[in-house]
Each structure stands twice: as C-alpha cells, then as structure tokens.
C-alpha cells in the first residue's frame, strides 16, 4: 500500500527514533511512504490558541501539498497532534463551507487550494493494524517479545475526539488496537487503566506542578502494574514520559525508572531487527535493563557531548520553588 507521509517537526529531531523505526518496518510490512513535499508545522496546540483562520490555513497548506501526490488519497501521520490537526482541518473544511471558503482564500495567496475531505487522514497505528493487519504482522515475527511486560499507552489525540463521518478507528475511552498488536508481537500486555489518559502536553512549560503530576500518574500506574516499559505512539507522550521523567522524579523526590519506547521499535525488535537501527538507545530513561529480558543487546550510545559552557555545569540541586 502507498501512503502520503507527514512526519511532523518532532520526528525531524527529538523523535527521530520514531521516524527511523517506522521507515525500517515499512518494507517488511509492505508499505510505501511518500513524504509530503516541503511540509510545514501543523501548529500543534499553540497556533489555534492565537488565530483561528491562520491556524487552519497553516494545516491546510499541508493537506494541499499532500493532495498534489496523485497516486494515493491516504495521508498518514505518526504524531498524534499532527494527526488530529490534519484530520480536524479536513473534517471542518468539509462540514463548514464558510470556513472552507476563508481557508481557500488564504491558500490562494500562496497559489494553493484544497477541498475538504479529498484526503483520508490516518494515524500510523491505524494503517498498520487495519491495512496490514494482525495476521500479516504475526507472520513476520521471528523474535517474539516473550516475557516482556508492556504497558500500552495511547494518550489522547489518537482516539479523541470523534470527528467527521468515520469517527475514530479505536474506542475513545478504552482503545485496544495497540494491546492486540503487542500481544501479536509476543509481549505480555498489562491491562493499563491509564492507557488513554493525558501526558500533559505542553504543561511542563506552563505549570510544572500540573505537568509533572500528569506524568507521575502514568509512570506510577505502569510501575504499579510491574510493567518493564511503556509503549507509545506519539512523540509528545514519549518526550513527556521519557525526557521529563528525571525532572518529574526530582519534583516529587521519587526514583521511578520506566523506559518508554515507540510501538514501531517493538515491531522492529519482534521482526529480529537490530536495536540500534531502530533508534533504540536514544531514550533518556535507559531501556537496556528491560530489553535484556528478551535478549536484546543495545550498544552503549556514543557520547558526542561537546564541552558544555562552564556556567552550565556542575548542576547544583535547586531548592524547590514555593
């Protein structure tokens, strides 16, 4: 199957492991991805907080660019925020002729146009479980993730809200597609009650206590269920749960150690691919102890730190701000 592919800004850098692993499993899964030509940021949750028409025009430029690719009508996004923004713009343009008209007036200034509903916007997890299918995936498993306890974590924007004619591809409250996928890969999947709860999005930057509390709940939940690691499908969730886990621990004076990997990396491991080729080793919370359980060896990450400025190190521990 051929798809237009919208990587999104996170996958360019902080979540490059997600991009690399998605590309690595594309061939064995029989999927072809064509990157949207000169795509731009989807605006995340920020642009729409300031401007309505401009934020939709920003998203619509991507839809117009993707629609230029005539060989497929399916647009795939691996990031849940990009996925929702693209899907929402697509649906609202189709639903509201006045909004569509304004967006097209704006797009015309850049020589583009788009008709709402032309493309079908889909999440990477959706196309993998529904187009490729569990059976085809199972047939490719050569190294089952036997003995690994995983917490499947969906987050918010992949399953909510229900939009347009097709709604969502999984249940908004109790999704199960990732659970089934991980079972097919041979892992022991815990029935994670917080699987569709929020990771906090940008709240670490707005209100630390709010953001860290949302991260703590998820990490504690997975730890209480004795998960070896959390498996996610969104770069924002991975960033919050992995990169901010240390700061969260410092905030609450806790010592949680819960690695967070992408589902595409788990598929690659079960297909017998090399961990480094799947971007494993770039997570901040070391996943090696967990992966040793399934006999996966991850080479020591090369430390390429340039000498930091003098004033930045050593890190004194700051007293808690009240």
């Amino acid at each position: 199957m051929k798809y237009s592919y919208f990587p999104g800004c996170s996958l360019e850098r902080n979540a490059s492991a997600y991009h690399v692993s998605a590309m690595a499993i594309a061939e064995p899964l029989g999927m072809e991805f064509v990157e949207v030509e000169d795509w731009n940021c989807c605006g995340a949750t920020e642009y729409v907080s300031l401007n309505l028409i401009a934020s939709y025009a920003l998203i619509a430029r991507n839809l117009a660019q993707a629609a230029k690719e005539t060989s497929t009508k399916q647009l795939v996004a691996p990031c849940s925020a990009c996925y929702l923004n693209l899907k929402k713009c697509n649906a609202y343009m189709e639903e509201s002729p006045s909004l569509e008209e304004k967006i097209n007036l704006a797009l015309a200034a850049g020589g583009l146009s788009y008709k709402g509903g032309t493309l079908k916007v889909r999440h990477l997890l959706d196309v993998i479980v529904n187009d490729v299918g569990y059976e085809a995936i199972a047939a490719k498993v050569t190294k089952p993730l036997k003995g690994l306890r995983v917490a499947p974590y969906y987050g918010c924007m992949i399953v909510r809200p229900k939009l347009g004619k097709n709604g969502t591809f999984d249940n908004p409250e109790y999704p199960t597609t990732l659970d089934k996928l991980l079972k097919v890969l041979g892992a022991t999947v815990i029935d994670f009650p917080l699987k569709a709860h929020c990771c906090g999005g940008h709240m670490t930057q707005i209100s630390e206590s709010t953001g860290f509390e949302l991260i703590r709940r998820l990490i504690k939940g997975a730890t209480d269920y004795k998960a070896d690691l959390i498996v996610t499908l969104c770069p924002m969730c991975q960033l919050n749960l992995d990169a901010f886990q240390g700061a969260m621990n410092a905030h609450f004076n806790t010592t949680y150690h819960m690695p967070v990997l992408y589902f595409t990396q788990m598929i690659g491991l079960a297909f017998g691919m090399d961990a480094a080729s799947l971007g494993i080793g770039t997570e901040l919370v070391d996943a090696r102890p967990a992966l040793e359980k399934i006999g996966v060896e991850v080479p020591e990450a090369e430390i390429v730190v340039k000498k930091p400025p003098k004033e930045a190190l050593p890190m004194p521990s700051m007293p808690e701000e009240k």
């Binding site: 401007n51 401009a54 797009l107 200034a109």
Partner: peptide, 9 residues
C-alpha cells in the same frame, strides 16, 4: 497564506 488568513480574520 498566513498574512491573508489574518487579514480575513
């Protein structure tokens, strides 16, 4: 595109 959108807004 964005300038035009803001104008419309």
């Amino acid at each position: 595109i964005l300038n035009k959108a803001k104008e419309l807004e």
